[in-house]
């Protein structure tokens, strides 16, 4: 019994072509036995089994002359009194199908998608690094060192982690090992400038904080909650230690430091200008 094209699995395009080739290379087998296989392979390739000549004519993956020739041969084959498709025509189509279908095609596409994913991730990383998209909170690669103490005197056991930005709001405990109230936080980072730069630092904290630049107290808002404090500094080229000490009495705690660099719109300090230091006292 001859196999109907419908009974050939889509996954077996390789087998279909192999079967067609075996028949076509067999000198005693009539080429018409290979017709269903080749037809099915085209159906898989073009996702269209209904009107193969028409689908082939519209298929733009082959040179025009070739696809018209293929379409004509199938049209001729479909006509009841038409001339059957020849062995040579079938063999040529099998060769074309082998070349254009299956593994290399998929491999190339998957490779393209993978390349695209890597490229996009690269763009995203660049955007994060340049500060055009904000990175924040607990980040294993952030430039801020955050140390939280259970008491506001900055003594005793502490929890340390890295952060992308000095912007925190805690409604509960700031860390799983810390109490939710009456804790203290020390944030530090190294600011690296290529040229002398004017920077307006804007700090808002709940319940109180102070900002140190190169060890010098620049803002003292230890007992001021929820109001911004600003300081302007002309910083020389080089590395500067930025440190914030913050404490919480009770309820919501927050700390936020933004900066206006050379009179630009205040925002988080770009991570590209910051460097992580394990020592909160020096860079």
């Amino acid at each position: 019994m001859m196999t109907s094209p419908d009974e050939l699995s889509k996954d077996s395009v390789e087998d279909v072509l192999a079967a067609a080739e075996a028949i076509l290379h067999d000198p005693v087998a009539a080429p018409r036995f290979a017709v269903p296989c080749v037809r099915q392979a085209w159906a898989i390739k073009l996702e269209d089994a209904a009107d193969l000549p028409e689908a082939l004519r519209e298929y733009d993956g082959l040179p025009k002359a070739q696809r018209v020739r293929f379409a004509d041969s199938w049209q001729r084959d479909e006509q009841e009194d038409g001339e059957a498709i020849t062995r040579g025509e079938l063999l040529e189509q099998v060769r074309v199908l082998r070349r254009t279908t299956a593994p290399p095609n998929r491999r190339m596409l998957y490779g393209a998608w993978a390349l695209m994913a890597v490229a996009l991730l690269g763009i995203l990383m660049l955007r994060m690094y340049s500060g055009s998209v904000g990175i924040t909170q607990e980040s294993s690669v952030g430039p801020w060192r955050v140390e939280i103490f259970a008491i506001k005197e900055f003594r005793g056991p502490s929890a340390v982690f890295r952060a992308g930005d000095a912007d925190f709001k805690w409604k509960g405990p700031p860390h799983e090992t810390m109490p939710k109230d009456k804790f203290a936080t020390r944030l530090s980072t190294c600011l690296e400038l290529d040229a002398p730069t004017r920077i307006d630092f804007v700090m808002v904290a709940n319940d109180g904080a102070r900002l140190f630049i190169d060890g010098e107290k620049a803002i003292n808002a230890w007992s001021v909650s929820g109001k911004s404090r600003t300081v302007t500094r002309e910083l020389a080229a080089g590395t500067h230690l930025i440190m914030i000490e913050h404490h919480d009495k009770r309820g919501t705690a927050s700390i936020n430091l933004t900066a206006s660099i050379d009179k630009g719109l205040p925002g988080p300090i770009p991570p590209a200008l910051l460097r992580y230091s394990d020592d909160p006292e020096k860079c």
């Binding site: 912007d167 804007v202 808002v204 929820g226 911004s228 936020n256 933004t258 205040p266």
Partner: peptide, 23 residues
């Protein structure tokens, strides 16, 4: 005004996009 201690606003949204001293 931007750098003042507090900037007060009212309305139906947008607070999450404002700096911390915009209350």
């Amino acid at each position: 005004t931007y750098l003042s201690k507090k900037v007060r606003y009212a309305g139906c949204g947008g607070g999450g996009e404002l700096p911390a001293h915009f209350v």
